[in-house]
Design a binder for these strands. Structure first.
Lengths: 151, 151
DNA sequence: TTGAACATCTTAGCCGCTAAGACAATTCCT
DNA sequence: AGGAATTGTCTTAGCGGCTAAGATGTTCAA
C-alpha cells in the first residue's frame, strides 16, 4: 500500500508487538495454572485444535520439537490426564494422541475466561463492524501463516 | 453481549487461538534467526519497547524470570552485541540495560518483513474500516492486558 | 523372506531455570 | 554519623527438559 500515513502504520505495528507480547505471556500463565510447562501447553493446544488425533511425530513437526522431546511431552500430558496414547490400528508403529474429553475442565475454564473477555470486546461493535473485524482477522491469520512458514 | 449468534463467537474464538499459536511460533522463529533463545528474544523485545532503559530487576519482573536467569539473559544479549550493561549513576546497585542502537540489523530486518505483511493486510481496507480495526485492537489489547495480569 | 524405510522411545550430555545465599550499595533509624 | 535493615545484582548447586544419536519395533517392497 502506498498512501497510508506513516503514523498509522507505526501505530498498528505497535499494536502487533503489544499483542504478541501479551499472547506469549498469556500462554505462559495458562500453562502455569494447568501445572504444565509452556511447551506442554503448546502441544496440548495443537492436539486440541487438530481435526482428528495427531501422531507423536506430527506433533514433533508442528511444534518444532525433536521426537525425543515429544515423547516426554506426551508422558507428562498423559500422566496429568489430558491425553491418552492409542496405537494406530492401521499402522502399529504410530502413536495417536487422543485428547481426553473430560478432565479438560481447567483448560476450558481458563479459556472460558478469555472467551468472556472476547465477548466483552466484541460487544462494542455492531454487525457491520464485526464483519470488518472478521475479514481483518482472516486475512491477518492467512498472511501471517505464510510469513511464519517461510521465515 | 447477549444477542451474538453462537457461531460468530465460535469463529472468533478459533481466530484467537489460531493467532495465538502463530504468534508463539513467530517469536520462536525470530529468535532462532537471531541466534537467540525465545527467552532472550522476549527480554530483548521488552527492552526495546520500553521508554527508557530497563534495570535487570525490572526485566525479571516483566518477563517472570528469576533475577539469576536474567543475569544469564543479559550476559548472552550483551555478548551478542544487542545490549550494553550500564551502572545507574544515581544508584550504583542497579544495572541499566541499554539496547545498542546499531547491530539491531537482523532484528529490524525480520520485523520489517512482518511489517510488510501488515501493510499488505491493511491495504485491503479503507479508512473507515481501518478505524474500526484500530478501535478493535486497542480494546482487545486493553482487555487482554487486564486478563493476563489477573490470570 | 529379507533389507530398507519408518515411527517412536531411550539415553547421554548440555544448557537454562529456580532457589538460596553472597556481595555491594543505599536507606533508615536513632 | 554509624550500624542495621533493605535493596539490586550476581553466583552457585541442583533439577529438568531439550537435542542428537542410536535402539526397538513395525511396515513395505522386491
Amino acid at each position: 500500500m502506498f498512501n497510508m500515513e506513516p503514523e498509522v502504520l507505526e501505530r498498528f505495528t505497535l499494536y502487533m508487538r503489544e499483542q504478541s507480547a501479551l499472547t506469549v505471556m498469556f500462554h505462559t500463565k495458562v500453562a502455569e495454572q494447568m501445572g504444565l510447562s509452556a511447551t506442554d501447553e503448546k502441544c496440548l493446544d495443537l492436539a486440541m485444535r487438530a481435526e482428528g488425533p495427531l501422531t507423536a511425530g506430527r506433533i514433533a513437526e508442528l511444534s518444532g520439537l525433536s521426537t525425543g522431546a515429544v515423547t516426554g511431552v506426551i508422558d507428562r500430558l498423559e500422566r496429568a490426564g489430558f491425553v491418552r496414547r492409542v496405537r494406530d490400528p492401521h499402522d502399529r508403529r504410530k502413536v495417536l494422541v487422543q485428547v481426553t474429553p473430560g478432565d479438560l475442565g481447567k483448560f476450558e475454564q481458563l479459556f472460558g475466561k478469555a472467551q468472556a473477555s472476547l465477548v466483552e470486546v466484541l460487544s462494542h461493535f455492531d454487525d457491520d463492524e464485526l464483519q470488518v473485524i472478521e475479514r481483518y482477522l482472516q486475512l491477518q491469520i492467512e498472511t501471517f501463516r505464510r510469513r511464519v512458514i517461510d521465515t
